[in-house]
């Protein structure tokens, strides 16, 4: 029995249910609680995805910063794509580089890989243990340490605090 995993999946299900219904009537809340508890119990009895999330004020603060950095990177990456697509000479220099991550937890790595995909010019292709293989539209440096510094570290230092 894992109370932390169960309660996180309960909260996710409950918030989804309330957003989907768009009202706070008593009947909605009661049926939501019953269904969420049941589903969380059936599907998350043995799951350990959320085990590494830390609930400290520092983690919360870093999550907010991380979210804003992520949004800025997403917008930057769109302007980057727009610039490359609209330039007649098509300025790309693609290649697949290898980087490594310090993150240990599953969910931390998932979020790191997804963030890399949504940031300027990078796309996660494969992950083997602590190595990520990334398609980079404009390879500036194919050395593993330099590439890690340029692609991974801006997210890693925040995710490390939140997920470990």
């Amino acid at each position: 029995m894992n109370i932390k995993n169960l309660s996180i999946s309960f909260i996710i299900l409950m918030v989804t249910w309330l957003l989907l219904n768009g009202n706070l009537e008593i009947i909605t809340i009661i049926s939501g609680i019953i269904i969420s508890v049941l589903l969380a119990y059936i599907f998350c009895k043995k799951c350990d995805v959320f085990s590494n999330i830390k609930f400290t004020p520092k983690a919360f603060f870093y999550f907010i910063i991380y979210f804003f950095i992520f949004i800025v990177e997403l917008i930057k990456s769109n302007f980057d794509v727009a610039r490359r697509v609209l330039t007649p000479s098509l300025p790309i220099k693609p290649g697949i580089v290898e980087v490594k991550t310090k993150l240990k937890s599953k969910i931390g790595r998932i979020i790191l890989a997804n963030s890399i995909t949504l940031t300027p010019g990078t796309l996660t292709i494969e992950m083997k243990e602590d190595r990520l293989y990334i398609h980079w539209i404009d390879v500036r440096n194919d050395d593993i340490n330099e590439a890690t510094k340029q692609i991974v570290q801006k997210f890693e230092k925040y995710l490390e605090v939140i997920y470990g």
């Binding site: 997403l74 917008i75 990456s77 769109n78 980057d80 794509v81 727009a82 490359r84 697509v85 098509l90 790309i92 693609p94 697949i96 995909t117 949504l118 010019g121 796309l123 292709i125 398609h135 539209i137």
Partner: peptide, 19 residues
């Protein structure tokens, strides 16, 4: 415009997410 599948996925993902 992009020449191979990986570059196409790159532009496709980023633009479609924010769009």
């Amino acid at each position: 415009r992009m020449p191979d599948i990986y570059n196409r996925i790159q532009t496709g993902t980023k633009a479609s997410t924010l769009g």
